[in-house]
Write a protein that binds this DNA or RNA. Structure first.
Lengths: 335, 335
DNA sequence: GTGAAAGCGCTAACAT
DNA sequence: ATGTTAGCGCTTTCAC
């Protein structure tokens, strides 16, 4: 790494402005109590020297870092196959930026990474953590709790978080699923099937619960387990068609699977929505708009979710409980 | 932000091990020259206390941060509509992790952000920068150069970078485009059209150049400008169909536009590939595999690109020149 | 080989 | 209102 020219220090600015370091520090940090003529002199010196505070030195004494870690635990490539991740990141980034915080991204794929992340968090580089994509039984939360950092989870964790519970932000997966199924029922459909997501993620479980809320004790053969991938959606759709050829509607736990289902339906000569109506979940563009026919789906505001996670963390609004964002049914041609 | 328990310091470890701080420091940093019995005592003390070095204190003296900034300049939402971004990030993350470096993500959308980023880089928080998604005339490179940080660009920048040139990693856009067009010609197609990307990005320009390398002075009406979005692909395809109803092949500068073109073609009753053969660029899954018919396209290894960028930066292999990665034609059903 | 001591650049009491 | 001073926790000469 090429050496960078030594940057001016507080001392240098103080000398140039003919004041003490403390005064410069006050001006730089916007602390009041420096009279105008002086403050102005300092500001000029700062400009002339191109002074920028050394963050390491500052952190050393303040014990703050103005940085938070975003941890995405995703061993599979799933995250990278959809824009979800990028959207949340963007929401987070916006909020963090507004509060002058930096975003340190920690991507983890396997156990080794977990240890590394644990060490990093314990190392006191960041003021808090935002955590995503947890699967049931993920060891990460324990590591994080041990590090004793304020943390907000993205998506309802599967464990209660002990005494105080845990701070998280999630979409109203269950309510959204109910809306989807009710919409199908409202269309006059009678045999509504469901393709679940990977059931080791709470989002999948919650959407399944929503489906059941409305369908009650419907034929269990109308539920097929998927995994949130297009391939999984295809397999599940084939299975459903085999088990219940008479089905007239499908609610898939995400758009990717709905797209897969659409293909299988076409392959089997079923017209959508005439023969079978299809609803997805996410409103993930460009998927939802590009399917044939365009997908009716449940929209969740991913970016807002990211923003709110960051906001809670920064406000120490990280009160240990869940914040649930509303979803919205978006009608297109598939149902 | 809840206060975190004070963590043990070097001093504490030294006391517990009955040695000096200097010795502990040596052991912790793997410096040789500490005899075995002692070293072991220190290691035990570290474990027992759960000591983790304070990075701020360390940086203060070493002036290194073991962190690099990844800057994604993307005012539009394009990045977020495709998995490109996430893939590159993943490659970078892997490489960085292997070298015990952290990834600080800087997302920028507008001019204000640029100033912020400039300040951040100048602030000496990171040891280097990786920069993406530049558009022609982007002011960012200047800011970065002024900060004097080692930098590697993702994708060929449009400016020479002055004296020494500039370090970057890019796919062989031009060569890939040539392969695509030759493939079409090899299929016996005679009127090959091209839908370009946003021509303020070098990737789009290079792909267009590749097209022209092969097609020579073909009818200029066979080239329509797109913008890398599906909508842009649709518009361009309509235009092309209008101008040259006899076209029998299309090379789109990315898969998203190819998908749009496919829809328009179908809408106009042209069969693919029988009437019109279509080739995309990127091999962006799940897009390329999910279109109807699945897309023949030019694959670029995005993750590898990210990895190499990081590697060059860390090795100070940031020699000021370009590294071009090969592309590969992937045949599916559309051509 | 090991320890003592001098800072790195900054903030925050405490004086004045 | 401004300056003086004592560290923050670590690495790194320099003695021993």
């Amino acid at each position: 790494m090429t050496d960078t020219v030594p940057r001016p220090t507080l001392e240098a600015v103080a000398a140039r402005a003919g004041v003490s370091r403390a005064t410069v520090s006050r001006v730089v940090n916007g602390s009041d109590g420096v009279r105008e003529p002086l403050a102005e002199r300092v500001r000029r010196a700062v400009d002339e020297l191109g002074y920028v505070p050394n963050q390491a030195a500052r952190s050393l004494v303040t014990k703050r870092h103005d940085a938070i870690a975003v941890i995405v635990a995703e061993p599979e490539t799933r995250v990278f196959a959809d824009p979800f991740f990028a959207r949340q990141l963007r929401g987070i980034s916006k909020e963090l930026t507004a509060h002058d915080n930096q975003l340190v991204l920690l991507l983890t794929e396997d156990r080794d990474d977990h240890a590394r992340v644990g060490r990093y968090l314990a190392g006191g580089h960041v003021d808090g953590a935002l955590v995503f994509s947890l699967h049931i039984d993920d060891p990460l939360p324990q590591l994080i709790q041990r590090a004793g950092l304020p943390t907000v989870y993205g998506g309802r964790p599967d464990w209660n978080g002990g005494q105080g519970g845990v701070a998280y932000v999630d979409s109203d997966n269950r309510g959204g699923a109910r809306d989807a199924v009710r919409h199908l029922l409202g269309l006059g459909r009678e045999r509504v099937a469901h393709i679940t997501g990977a059931l080791d993620q709470t989002a999948a479980v919650d959407r399944l619960d929503g489906f059941r809320d409305v369908m009650g004790g419907a034929d269990p053969l109308l539920v097929a387990e998927g995994d949130f991938t297009p391939g999984g959606g295809e397999r599940a759709m084939r299975l459903l068609l085999e088990r219940c050829p008479s089905l007239d509607a499908v609610f898939a736990a995400n758009d990717l699977m709905a797209a897969g289902a659409l293909r299988v339906l076409r392959e089997h000569g079923r017209r959508v929505p005439d023969d079978v109506a299809v609803v997805g979940f996410d409103d993930m563009l460009p998927i939802a708009e590009q399917t044939d026919p365009p997908l009716t789906t449940v929209r969740q505001d991913i970016e807002e979710m990211g923003r709110l996670m960051a906001r809670r963390l920064l406000n120490d609004g990280a009160e240990p409980d869940g914040l649930i964002l509303p979803t919205m049914l978006v009608r297109r041609a598939s149902a």
